[in-house]
């Protein structure tokens, strides 16, 4: 079964990079450009794993995660936070919002795929 990933990032460059890496790994990738769009795409994409940026317009990564957790308490889809920071405080904040884990940018492909595989139940 093809693993479906919803990737949310306002940076086209990051989306491009994710697309290159995840398609290569044989994943089905859906994209959104901010948290609000991410919420909209969540239903149709029905992802096994969500990857989201933190700093985004309209609805940021924390807000997105909180909304997902609030809206789907019965279905804790794994959400990985993409972040350029690796400070414990930021991770703590992501976790409090309900994040499953994190990927530090710039990611290398193996770690990215590894992190997704680690949290994906399929």
């Amino acid at each position: 079964m093809t693993l479906r990933v919803l990737a949310i990032d306002d940076s086209l460059t990051i989306r491009n990079l994710l697309h290159a890496a995840l398609s290569e790994a044989g994943f089905e990738v859906h994209f959104a450009e901010d948290g609000s769009q991410g919420l909209e795409r969540l239903e149709e994409a029905d992802p096994h794993v969500v990857i989201t940026d933190i700093n985004m317009p309209v609805l940021d990564g924390f807000g997105f995660i909180e909304s997902v957790r609030r809206q789907h308490p019965d279905r804790p889809v794994p959400i990985l936070v993409l972040t350029t920071e690796s400070s414990p405080a930021l991770k703590e904040r992501a976790r409090r919002a309900g994040a499953t884990g994190w990927i530090v940018k710039p990611f290398d492909e193996a770690r990215l795929i590894g992190a997704i595989e680690r949290v994906a139940a399929r």
Partner: peptide
């Protein structure tokens, strides 16, 4: 709070942003 009916209508203010809609 019950989950909102429409996904786009996000209640509450996200911590780092202004109005959502």
């Amino acid at each position: 709070a019950p989950p909102p009916a429409t996904p786009a209508n996000v209640p509450g203010s996200p911590p780092m942003n202004g109005p959502t809609n």
